[in-house]
């Protein structure tokens, strides 16, 4: 298994496409950072336009923590594409290249091969997130410094104390990793149904886009299925940036407002991962290789 994984990782990281994602992330984050460095004031003014009518916010809103939040908010919508690029290609790409049949005539169990491939895509996903953390969080902290994290939620404002922020990012990144692994699992699962990689990549993105629309639209019919859509739960990382207050409306440092939401979302995502990967293994074990 370990050897399989090594081989799969070797293949993943020998491909130029893999580094394209890292380059894309670097560029995207760089653009956001540059934009906020040059015109950050405009951005915060815009975001807070409604709020600033009644309140004056004093302090360094545009700090590294805030920048990272903006980056995550913007980027986690696009990262699924970069993950699909690799995960949805894991099987279909090999089928397309013709290497799948050679691979499967080797004295290795199909389950081991498919699991190694999935774990390789998970590792790729995690590395991508670590890279986002390095570029989006650590580099932003370095460039913009740190301070309290000022966030506008849909119905209230949260100011997280500087000393209370970092662990929340750790949690948020872990959660985002789970969400992105779900994307990887979906892409991986879909990659069984095609012998070219474009199909599953587009299919993965389409599923995510459609489900996100369903998750966002406030229509009673959709509201029924919303709790079961993984896209509804993919943004639960934001829950890490909301804390409880006591009766005097004082922030309770180190608390999370809705820990149950995080647990529920994580469970839904895990169930999706297990279903997608389970189905993938099951299908792959009996798949006739005709490519």
């Amino acid at each position: 298994m370990w050897e399989h994984l090594q081989i799969e990782l070797y293949k993943v990281f020998k491909r130029p496409r893999t580094y394209l994602s890292f380059a894309a992330i670097t560029a995207l984050i760089g653009v956001i950072q540059l934009g906020l460095m040059v015109d950050g004031k405009e951005y915060t003014d815009f975001v807070m336009a409604d709020f600033a009518g009644s309140f004056s916010v004093d302090g360094k809103i545009l700090n590294g923590y805030f920048i990272c939040y903006v980056i995550l908010q913007l980027l986690l919508v696009h990262v699924p594409l970069l993950i699909a690029l690799i995960a949805a290609d894991m099987i279909s790409g090999e089928a397309n290249m013709g290497t799948l049949r050679l691979l499967l005539t080797k004295p290795q169990s199909r389950t081991a091969i498919v699991m190694a491939k999935f774990i390789a895509s998970v590792i790729y996903t995690l590395l991508l997130l670590i890279w986002i953390a390095i570029m989006g969080l650590f580099l932003s902290m370095l460039i913009f410094g740190t301070d309290d994290l000022f966030l506008m939620k849909s119905s209230y404002v949260v100011i997280v104390k500087e000393s209370d922020v970092f662990w929340r990012y750790a949690g948020a990144f872990c959660f985002a990793a789970l969400a992105m692994v779900t994307v990887a699992a979906l892409g991986f699962f879909l990659s069984f149904f095609a012998e070219n990689s474009i199909g599953p990549i587009v299919a993965t993105m389409s599923v995510i886009i459609v489900c996100t629309i369903l998750s966002t639209m406030n229509i009673p019919l959709f509201n029924l299925i919303k709790p079961y859509l993984f896209t509804t739960h993919m943004i639960t990382w934001k829950e890490f940036f909301d804390f409880k207050v006591n009766d005097a409306n004082e922030a309770i440092i180190g608390s999370i407002q809705y820990p149950d939401k995080i647990i529920r979302s994580a469970t839904v995502l895990l169930v999706h991962i297990v279903l997608f990967v389970g189905a993938a293994v099951w299908l792959f074990r009996k798949k006739d290789i005709l490519s």
Partner: peptide, 21 residues
């Protein structure tokens, strides 16, 4: 399966390998 395939070598149709390696 595994024991048998360990003693079998095959080229099936086009000899496709990893082009980027």
């Amino acid at each position: 399966r595994k024991d048998i395939l360990a003693q079998v070598g095959a080229v099936i149709e086009k000899p496709d390998v990893y082009k980027y390696l």
